[in-house]
Design a protein around this nucleic acid. Sequence first.
DNA 1: TTCCGTGTAACCTGATTGAGGTATGGCACA
DNA 2: TGTGCCATACCTCAATCAGGTTACACGGAA
Lengths: 212, 212
Amino acid sequence: MPVTIIIFEDNAHLRESLTSLLSLTDDYSVINSFPDCSKVAEQIKRYQPDVVLMDIDMPGINGIEAVKKIREFDKKVQIIMLTVFDDNTHVFEAMYAGANGYLLKKYVSDKLIDAIRDVLDGGAPMSPSIARMVISNMQQPIHKVADNDYQLTAREKETLQLLSKGNSFKMIAAQLNISIDTVRTHIKRIYDKLHVRSQIEAVSKAINERLV
Amino acid sequence: MPVTIIIFEDNAHLRESLTSLLSLTDDYSVINSFPDCSKVAEQIKRYQPDVVLMDIDMPGINGIEAVKKIREFDKKVQIIMLTVFDDNTHVFEAMYAGANGYLLKKYVSDKLIDAIRDVLDGGAPMSPSIARMVISNMQQPIHKVADNDYQLTAREKETLQLLSKGNSFKMIAAQLNISIDTVRTHIKRIYDKLHVRSQIEAVSKAINERLV
DNA sequence: TTCCGTGTAACCTGATTGAGGTATGGCACA
DNA sequence: TGTGCCATACCTCAATCAGGTTACACGGAA
């Protein structure tokens, strides 16, 4: 039996195009399509589609809000965003909301069929520029890591890591198999190097600057 | 002129296969390949390739370390990881290190040519399961934010925020214009609500679960 | 070979924090 | 009008922490 699909898209012309594009293959069946998301929850519950194609810019409830509503009760339906927006805000909000894929409309005719198969296989179809944005977003932390080098020794880093997880000096001593006085010594050197004067300052700095 | 490519891969057979696969098209030229990364920096500087194909599991310096070394001096060369590892740790470490794409070896014969074109077009080629891991990783934060409601009162949140910034009880008291004993009371209630028994545990939990 | 950095360990003093309590005034809601 | 929640404040004792100092073993660099 074919994969069932529901489309949310306010542009009637595009809604038609998508439907006919997908009807070219027997594997997919567009069981319904809607111009807005005012009743998105009940529509999803009623039709139980395998895949949802979701526009972002729609009158009333936008596509990102709609994804949030769907994810409140359904974690399994595969949702592919289909939009013209390729800016950070829209992409990341859609991903945070729980979308599984993000396809720019300009690639739809070429890539939609592949994207649906991909998302059903457990992938996350993304237009190239979107994929690059996503991984650039992940890479930001490294730059920070790169320039905050406080010259901590290996042992001091271990100590700081354990401290940052909420361990007391006594617990750190037990886990590192050293005496509590040695832990003190390490901690004192860490304070000197990080220019802090207390546990919390050290932990706060360690976590915020991703030293751990 | 063709796209220049360098390959780092310890398996001689696979190194050959990749080279011959890429020689099928005139667009790509494998200008050199190496079985390890011991001289990765000077090799990249010397050959100035457009694209690097990088294995992860190699003797000596592994692929992720090699990516870090390359990114210290070259942010522009496009690096595609080519590995058998599809676990979180390897994927995210490679991305953090500065890889532009991540292809599982089982898809290499089908997807390598596309992936290289994709990465040169500003995309981020990823095998489907990798893409899904990356976006799942982005989606984690919301779930946390949603369910960590410890019912802190407004004053308790303020206190926790100040604590998390490295303030002592005394400093918090001064900033909130209350006595140090009141700060104690708030902190005790916070400990009860967060189920912790010390400053560092509270701060660690607060920062990690974004309560502040 | 000597010296320095690192990791280890110990001791001391004074300050801060944790864990029990108890108590009071204000405010909202029933 | 009482009950509950919040913010405030105080007390005591034990535990933990900060800062200072000293010491020793080990390995690598000068």
